[in-house]
Design a protein around this nucleic acid. Structure first.
Lengths: 289, 289
DNA sequence: GGTAGATTGTAATGAATATTACAATCTATG
DNA sequence: CATAGATTGTAATATTCATTACAATCTACC
């Protein structure tokens, strides 16, 4: 008669073990207890070591593993490793007593990443959920054209947003750096179109002026700026204030980037049905080149 | 001559690895990176599996392990298991992981920023300080020209880096999207020039090919990639592995961005005297327009 | 351009491992 | 107490593994 395995689903090994403990034979329970006692490390050693610790024979261990639904011992180990990995990833890794002998470079790196993370956390805490929802909803309406524009350094953010947004929906434009072309773009802007502006210090006059002209054309202005607020804030319909400080001579755009990614994520989720088709079609086009 | 082991004390394997990363040979660094990326699970598989994942030979893995102070592979694994066990015992066991009932907007925002921050922290923890120092030093040498190139989405990262790097030092070029111009750029590349490549999945053939051609021209390749490693990793002189996962259909480039900003910050600090003059002159030029 | 030293992979070897077949032992029931 | 069926261990086997020796390749320096 074939050995009937206890479970074939993908619960954790521990659950399966506990739930079916009474179906194990007395000797099989010994290694089972050892494993539970020291879960899951004990399962990551060789059969011989495991068997010795539990004071049973190798084949008994193997029969236990078989009853847990694994045809081979290495399979069982892979499952355990997999679980362990998942478990290690979730919590904030312990950053323990790392002696102070660590070099300055180490401190600098840690300080830098801490500051950036604080920026993100603090920025997000201050953003009203309603603003995000509202902007996301507007972006989901493909009737309204979207124009993205940024300053000397932030035009990169605009471009990043543009690339992804354009993958998601049509009717999106990135207004390039040369302000000589801006007049043309302004002509195209219709009422209720969305103009997304990135402006952090030092605020650029030309961007401010573009925004106010777009406003006159009836556009809705969405502003991404820093904690000192671009002058555009006073005319914008939606303002996102992001933290930009860093232990550096340069401001950090990381929080801005994160918000862009968040909005893209939400938008993609909300419009998944439409987006999926568009992405599929896009994929096909890529293939054919 | 006997192989001198790096350490025989009882620090964690990861510490030893990070502290002595620069003493490893190029090929030995590949499995080292894999291990750091997925610490310590990757060290618990067989040499063959480990070697395959890192795309090196078994003996190379063995030599790495030897340099870390272990005479035999199983010894190394025992140490890892031991560390892992200690780590699992201390904290409160479960991180129940918020049942996935309706994810409200608030939760979504928090989850998103948490993930991004974890990406940054995890990425930075795995980057050997020596790599950052070494790259920063190279970037400080204005004799070596710097070329930046990125893929479909990551060219934005290249551009961000370019903008700031160019403010700091001369002799920097951003290679644009149109691959038709790449042949010309290749002609200019001289021995010891730096080619900084951004390549995250899905990896682009044209970027890979550009990198290998640049290598033939004698350039030093610096790669920014994700946890799955671009194929360029095998020919790059320096590889930075960043975490890109996010609760989204899109990968997150935030960790990459943060590393760029960090390198820029460090570079600016290190070369402050030269940089200051350049920035002052630049400021004057802006005023006059 | 050539050569010594370092680096890396290939292939062979022996050791350790998982797995199987089967015998020994135990347990329950008539 | 006898015996069938379940349980467990022993020993043999085939597989996989770590390890080593050595050849090929690369790199730096003269």
């Amino acid at each position: 008669m074939a050995i009937k395995s206890i479970s074939s689903d993908n619960n954790s090994v521990m659950e399966v073990l506990l739930r079916n403990f009474e179906r194990l034979t007395p000797t099989e329970r010994k290694p089972a207890r050892i494993l539970l006692d020291n879960y899951p490390m004990e399962g990551l050693v060789t059969i011989a070591q495991f068997a010795k610790k539990a004071k049973v024979s190798g084949p008994t261990v193997l029969r236990l593993v078989a009853k847990l639904g694994f045809a081979r011992y290495p399979e069982f180990q892979n499952k355990l490793r997999q679980e362990l990995q998942a478990r290690l990833e979730t919590p904030v890794q312990k950053t323990p007593k790392q002696a102070k002998k660590s070099v300055r470079s180490h401190d600098f790196i840690a300080e830098f990443s801490d500051t950036v993370c604080q920026n993100i956390k603090k920025s997000f805490k201050n953003i009203p959920v309603s603003e995000i929802n509202s902007v996301t909803q507007s972006l989901g309406n493909t009737q309204q054209a979207v124009y993205l524009i940024g300053g000397r350094y932030t035009f990169v953010m605009a471009e990043h947003f543009y690339l992804h947004l354009h993958a998601i929906r049509p009717n999106v434009s990135h207004i390039d750096r040369q302000s000589s072309t801006w007049a043309d773009h302004l002509l195209d802007i219709k009422k209720n179109d969305l103009v997304i502006v990135f402006d952090i210090r030092r605020y650029q006059d030309d961007i401010v002026s573009f925004a106010s002209k777009a406003l006159k054309m009836g556009a809705k202005i969405i502003l991404f700026t820093d904690q000192w607020l671009s002058p555009i804030a006073s005319i914008a319909h939606h303002v996102f204030t992001l933290q930009t400080k860093a232990p550096s001579n340069w401001d950090s755009s990381t929080a801005i980037m994160t918000l862009i990614d968040l909005i893209l994520a939400k938008l993609t989720k909300d419009l998944w049905l439409e987006v999926k088709d568009r992405l599929d079609a896009r994929e096909e086009n890529f293939q054919s080149f």
